[in-house]
Design a protein around this nucleic acid. Structure first.
Length: 314
DNA sequence: AAAACGTCCAACCGCCGAGGT
DNA sequence: GACCTCGGCGGTTGGACGTTT
């Protein structure tokens, strides 16, 4: 199983906290928990822990079950589709991991949180920018997310010939993109309510519980103008922050004032190259070329040369 | 070969809100 | 209303593992 299980169950890692065990779970504990839940179901974790004969806190049992033992967990790398969804949802909700996880079936909040901290924040660090800064968010929205969409589209189109017949999904006439990491017959991804592929195009639809301002009203062009259309935030979305050319210190009063001004204006500050006329009709998303992208001191080319498959894995 | 460094992720911690008494 | 218990959440940590020097 996992490496934790290979450890000696009587080692000093298993420090007793009172009468409760801590540290890595053993195979025996996992079996106790799984069998008990199979027989009695979840809930009342403290009493469950006692009844199952586990010397663990209810919290620990709950965490172990939700993050590791649950049968419906997805394993393996975060797919580009999932990456795209995480970026998009994080841009809306911030560190609401559990909420984000609700929209990635089989993924846990812990997994998404770890992904964000280890992968996304690393890129922010490489850009010498705070991960929550406006600049970094803009990099994500205008560079990485379109790039991800391109990758998804490329994968979808390259597999459409052979996999089209396998990608029929429940009730829809459009073929869903299926993650290449999933075995045939596994759940399609992303779920139909988010993105679908029809006519070689990736389409975004509103995420449940999200602001209706993004519903079917917005989609970006990619930097190659490919026309992929996940559910991007729009200028009309009050929660969306738009470009500024200020330094990375997003907390400065000047930057805040500039943001306020930007929010009252059409979203155009990318080297002044974007105008309402240059956006795709009705899409509200600037049509950008990478070379147009100038914010602060970012070395845009360095992003593409990063030796990291975060944004490119298929 | 091995030390140093970086990455990943399971698990824990502290806080908070909901619900019950 | 006060108190307590519990579940859930986000932040953090420790250690295994991989990579680089």
């Amino acid at each position: 199983m996992d490496m934790a299980h290979e450890r000696n169950a009587s080692s000093e890692e298993e420090v007793m906290a009172g009468d409760l065990r801590r540290g890595p779970w053993t195979v025996e504990e996992d079996l106790l928990l799984v069998n008990y839940i199979a027989a009695h179901g979840e809930g009342r974790w403290n009493s469950l822990a006692r009844s199952a004969g586990l010397k663990r806190t209810g919290k620990s049992c709950r965490l172990r079950w939700l993050n590791y033992l649950r049968p419906d967990l997805r394993r393996g790398n975060i797919t580009p589709q999932e990456q795209l969804l995480i970026l998009e949802l994080h841009s809306r909700w911030g560190n609401r991991w559990s909420k984000i996880a609700q929209h990635l079936p089989g993924r846990t909040d812990n997994e998404i949180k770890n992904y964000w901290r280890t992968r996304v924040q690393k890129h922010a660090k490489q850009l010498k920018c705070d991960v929550n800064s406006k600049q970094f968010k803009d990099v994500m929205r205008y560079l990485w997310m379109p790039r991800l969409v391109e990758r998804i589209q490329a994968a979808a189109s390259s597999s459409s010939g052979t996999a089209a017949g396998q990608q029929q999904h429940n009730g829809g006439s459009e073929g869903l993109y299926e993650s290449p990491e999933l075995p045939t017959g596994d759940a399609c991804w992303p779920p139909a309510e988010y993105f679908t592929v029809a006519g070689g195009q990736l389409h975004g639809t509103p995420v449940p519980e999200l602001s209706s301002t993004t519903a079917g009203s917005s989609s970006p062009s990619t930097d190659s103008g490919a026309g992929a259309q996940p559910s991007w935030p729009t200028p009309a979305d009050g929660a969306v922050e738009w470009f500024s050319t200020t330094a990375c210190d997003a907390s400065s009063a000047a930057a805040a004032a500039m943001r306020d001004a930007e929010l009252a204006q059409p979203p155009c500050q990318v080297g002044q190259t974007w105008t309402s006329e240059s956006s795709l009709p009705g899409l509200g998303f600037p049509e950008l070329a990478v070379t147009d992208f100038e914010i602060g001191s970012f070395d845009v080319e360095s992003i593409w040369s990063m030796d990291d498959d975060l944004w490119y894995t298929v």
